[in-house]
Design a protein around this nucleic acid. Structure first.
Lengths: 211, 211, 211, 211
DNA sequence: CATGAATGAGTATTCATTCAT
DNA sequence: CATGAATGAATACTCATTCAT
């Protein structure tokens, strides 16, 4: 039966994504995630349907649910995947950050994140989902900000301003770049993004100790 | 949307049956309830489908859900309706109970309740639903038992035994009658029911003060 | 089970190596059946899922289907297993029935069957399954009744009443005991069951030839 | 989703929101629009339901449809209403823009638009609706940008940079302010917004001819 | 016009069963 | 045989929209 809501005695309340144990399963999960990414990106979270995602993955609806037992969990898993990749990018930036000026670091971040979002345009959709608990959203954002802050702290000459605030600025300017990137106003937008980058550079230069 | 589970900000958590405000609605509700009664009875609660109920009522699935927003609530509303009718039967018995012997009262109860369940064979299905919280089931049963007890208390000569226990016995013997009634073992069963009635009578005679 | 067939094999050519295999299959079947028993009992037949049963048996869904090709057949096989055990109980009663009074036999039956159902609480679930053909249910019940009847026939002094009817009474009173036993209304219920036992005893005494 | 109609290119017969002729109708329309604003804002466009909007307006679903024949049209009408108000704000700014520096005009715009969106928080929801044809969105945005540009053109000393680009910058910085305003990260956010304002001021000062 | 009932296509999700490895 | 992935029909429920009163 399908309605065990009232007085359900089921012990495990929330189903968790079944972990694939075979190669076949792993592959399928990967394909499903990419299909989800595409559909979420094209339609938005609400309008995306599990059926379309399954179809996009050339899979059956049953297979989709085998690994992702609810739509929110699918989105969540995809989001987590993207966050992992994002962290990898930041780690990568970190490896060459030492000795760079804050402005250079900032620009590097800006560019890499912009590229990241161009590669994974579903990211903002996932991050902006309305049915994600506020606190989780905030936590995720705070983590990212702290990541950026730790990068800025390694600038030479050192940043004397509040790196937290600066990180927030980076993030927000980036958000613009992201949003505009999705519009096809090509020429205008590119100029706009360049402007924002420049504003960021100036701000970071101001924030650095005079060499 | 259809999946507002996670972090739903909806203020009213559980939807309540919309109360019909037009004659048309009232009629529809009545038809839907009878259809539900029929399908629940035929298939059992779990196997009954909302679609079949709607079809049985020559209604659309949407109409069904307009008035009964979930399957459990539909069953619940139907159950409540039947309980009302049952109480009416008991009230009716109460009106002629005074001065009767416990045994006569008991038999009257037995017969009337048997007739009730023959008229509303879905009653046991509704009462036995597995997804009803234990306590609600218990409460409902306790209420009914108290009703019976109050009837027995009015017997003349008075009952000197525990009327609560006796009421429980009536109820249980009745449950047998009910269950067997649904089997088509006609002849055998009728004798069985008659036997049970007789056993009940004897027990009640023993429980009464000697005249 | 189907592996009863394979029991008849050419004893000489079959190496012992296959025995443990068969033994393993046997164990697996037993574990699966017990898992099914547990899940059917907890959730009811409809709400029980093959997947949960397999999980409960720490087996895979594929394995489950290897031995029980459909859910109804699984239930059926389990039911048959329980019926075998029930018959064993009745045989056991039969061994000491001679010379006892009908009332004593009846009480013994009552107590032993009650114990049986306490041990195998899934029994009523299996017996009550809605998708079992009426006639098979009836046949099963008739068989059980005949078993009881044959026990009663051996009472001393002899029963002069219709033993079929009396068996039906025992069965029904028992059904009550069973049902109530599953409710946690402890005290009340125990008194109720004791009462039913007593009523049964009286009825059986009446049914016996005066000694 | 259930309302992806608008995107389809029905060329000839687009239903238009009925123009109410009586005062009562006018009031009703206003109430409905405000209800829609509230619900769209709380739930987002997709998750908002026509039923809830009607309920919020203490009206009936039929009434709602009398004035707004589809959900997209309702959103559209509301959006148009908000755009009117926004234009009024810009006109108002225009009345005292003469003689002000670009930086002062920019800040005025920034502050007034921020206040506007605080007053009408549904605005971003309406503007961001995914089922609005790209071109219409772009047009709307271009119009707004041109409005801002015309304001900047009246700055004294004159702006020597590309006012279109500057307007875009204002708009984007504003978008940040808006988005962050809806988060409850109070302190951090206020500092962030102040920073953005400052960055805007500096950029506009640079863009102005030296006095 | 106002009201609320009627409609049904669409959506998420489940689960018995089959199949490839 | 064991395993777990694949499948898709079935099911509860939603909601934009239409219609009768």
């Amino acid at each position: 039966m399908q309605d065990m809501k009232e007085a359900s005695q089921k012990s495990s309340e929330e189903p968790k994504a079944r972990v694939p144990k075979r190669q076949r399963g792993h592959d399928r999960v990967a394909v499903l995630l990419e299909a989800a990414a595409k559909v979420f990106c094209e339609r938005g979270y609400d309008a995306a349907t599990m059926t379309e995602i399954a179809a996009e993955a050339r899979s059956s609806i049953g297979s989709l649910y085998q690994f992702f037992p609810t739509k929110p969990l699918l989105a969540e898993d995809l989001h987590i995947d993207r966050l992992e990749r994002l962290k990898a990018v930041l780690r990568d930036i970190g490896e060459k950050a030492d000795g760079l000026s804050a402005a250079d670091i900032g620009e590097e971040i800006f560019d890499r994140l912009a590229a990241f979002i161009e590669e994974f345009p579903e990211f903002p959709v996932l991050a902006g989902r309305r049915d994600v608990p506020r606190d989780r959203k905030a936590r995720s954002r705070a983590e990212l900000k702290e990541h950026l802050a730790s990068l800025l702290r390694r600038a030479q000459p050192p940043v004397i301003d509040d790196v937290g605030l600066l990180s927030a600025i980076i993030l927000e300017l980036l958000r613009i770049a992201v949003t505009t990137a999705s519009d096809p106003d090509a020429v205008e937008d590119q100029r706009l993004v360049r402007e924002l980058r420049l504003m960021l550079r100036k701000r970071l230069e101001e924030a650095s100790a005079k060499g």
